[in-house]
């Protein structure tokens, strides 16, 4: 892997790959245009089914939910379910909370992980490899082990029932993202830094002015992964937030189920609304995103 990948355009490459294909246009056309589409559409059907089910159930009225076997398309689509779902829980408030948590986490991850990874990838210091081994080892700690101790820490800090326990740790790095960033930074030629050092630049300046601009795609990946994870995070807000005015959407979904009832169609309507922003984000940033992944992860 080289940095070259960063500039590799993701747009469809239409040029024929071999001379052979050029000689057999019809077969070549079939091979290039039809076969991949058939395979892709087949795969997509499997992956779209859950979405389809969610969206169509969201449109069904209560009586239709007790039809066996379930109807594939709502008999009388009722978009009003989306309105009911938004009213059933304090949706706008939960939405704002989700946005705050997601933005805070994404910013924290975007700042801390490149910084920390830089320290592991581009500076030599005694004990570095041992320390990096510890970073990797923390990946293996099952979260339930940490719950009680963490709660004590946050209690002492007076952070319970605030967004801080959910956001602040992101500013101290996450082993997965540190690893991803480090793999990327290792690939950048060391000469870039060396020449800057000779010019008398300090390490933070090198990081800031030279390395970070080159690492933007990888930073984007970290931010997007962290944002998606924060958007859907369930257990942490469940534990640390207490007042319902601070709940995010991921927790709000639980309110559609009660001890003896499930508002099934409303749950699906709300879930659809929860997913849409992330899906939009993915579509909008797909190109940038995929390039970013490519540079980071290849050299495992």
């Amino acid at each position: 892997m080289t940095v070259r990948t960063v500039e590799r355009p993701l747009a469809v490459e239409q040029r024929p790959r071999t001379g052979r294909r050029r000689q057999r246009p019809l077969a070549g056309l079939f091979q290039a245009a039809v076969t991949p589409r058939v395979i892709l559409i087949g795969m997509c059907v499997l992956y779209v089914v859950p979405f389809y089910w969610m969206a169509t159930t969201a449109l069904k009225d209560n009586p239709e939910l007790n039809i066996y076997p379930p109807t594939l398309w709502p008999q009388a689509p009722n978009p009003g379910n989306f309105v009911s779902a938004v009213r059933y829980i304090p949706f706008p408030q939960f939405f704002i909370n989700s946005v705050i948590l997601t933005a805070g986490t994404a910013i924290g991850a975007g700042i801390s992980n490149p910084l920390i990874a830089y320290g592991f990838a581009r500076i030599r210091w005694p004990g570095r490899d041992l320390m990096f081994a510890i970073v990797m080892a923390t990946i293996f700690v099952p979260f339930p082990v940490l719950i009680l101790g963490l709660f004590d820490v946050f209690t002492k800090l007076g952070w319970i029932d605030t967004f801080l326990p959910l956001i602040v740790p992101a500013f101290f790095g996450n082993p997965f993202y540190i690893f991803l960033m480090r793999q990327f930074l290792l690939q950048l030629p060391i000469e870039i830094s060396d020449s800057a050092r000779i010019d008398g630049a300090r390490e933070l300046q090198i990081f800031w002015h030279i390395i970070l601009p080159l690492a933007k795609p990888a930073v984007a990946v970290v931010i997007i992964f962290a944002a998606v994870a924060a958007w859907n995070e369930f257990l942490l807000p469940l534990i640390y937030l207490q007042d319902e005015s601070r709940y995010p959407l991921a927790i709000g979904l639980q309110f559609f189920r009660s001890q003896h009832n499930v508002q099934y169609n409303l749950l699906m309507a709300a879930s659809t609304l929860v997913v849409l922003p992330v899906l939009g984000l993915f579509l909008a940033f797909q190109k940038f995103f995929i390039e970013g992944v490519s540079v980071g992860a290849v050299k495992g």
């Binding site: 992956y47 859950p50 998606v228 979904l253 879930s271 997913v275 992330v278």
Partner: peptide
């Protein structure tokens, strides 16, 4: 996008489906 989409569904909703 279609293939990636289910991985961003909240697990809570996904298991219901």
């Amino acid at each position: 996008a279609a293939i990636y989409a289910p991985s961003i569904l909240p697990v809570y909703a996904l298991t219901f489906i």
